[in-house]
């Protein structure tokens, strides 16, 4: 069985989120910051009278991102009853994974390594398959 993937761009790299985890893709406009939280948590945004925690995927992985926030899209995922909006540079189509996720010798780099399940082949070439729960549960930078 092939897995459906939401293909996106994070910090300029192609990435994919398992489509079954994604409830919808939204354009994030208004973010209410939550002071005191790790920097990858941008704040809260409201979707249909529900509060979503906005996660900057690039920062959670540990790479800086230059794209301005108001133009970015986010994938809405539900983890343990909490809704998160995973902010990405671009969200493309949903496509099929053409292979199983595999590790790459030498890894993808620390941040990516932790947040990714492996490399999958897609129609658009090799893509990193993200592990959303690992991404969301990124340890605090100061604690790490």
């Amino acid at each position: 069985m092939t897995e459906l993937l939401l293909q996106c761009l994070i910090a300029g790299r192609p990435a994919a989120i398992p489509a079954r985890e994604v409830q919808s893709v939204i354009a994030v406009e208004d973010i209410t910051p939550i002071p005191g939280t790790p920097d990858f948590i941008l704040g809260l945004t409201a979707l249909r009278s529900q509060a979503l925690t906005v996660i900057d995927c690039a920062r959670a992985i540990g790479v800086e991102n230059s794209a301005p926030v108001d133009e970015r899209r986010a994938a809405v995922v539900d983890l343990d009853g909490h809704l998160y909006a995973l902010l990405v540079d671009e969200a493309y189509d949903v496509g099929e994974a053409l292979s199983e996720a595999v590790a790459v010798p030498g890894g993808f780099g620390a941040g990516w390594q932790r947040a990714a399940r492996g490399l999958v082949e897609t129609e658009h070439g090799p893509t990193l398959l993200l592990d959303t729960s690992a991404l969301i549960c990124t340890p605090r930078q100061d604690a790490a």
Binding site: P35, G36, I41, A46, H82, Y84
Partner: peptide, 19 residues
């Protein structure tokens, strides 16, 4: 009052969120 994500909870500053 609605519960908040664990990562936000960790800050020990907030008890929940509301709209």
């Amino acid at each position: 009052v609605k519960p908040i994500a664990p990562a936000v909870m960790e800050t020990r500053l907030y008890a929940g969120t509301t709209l």
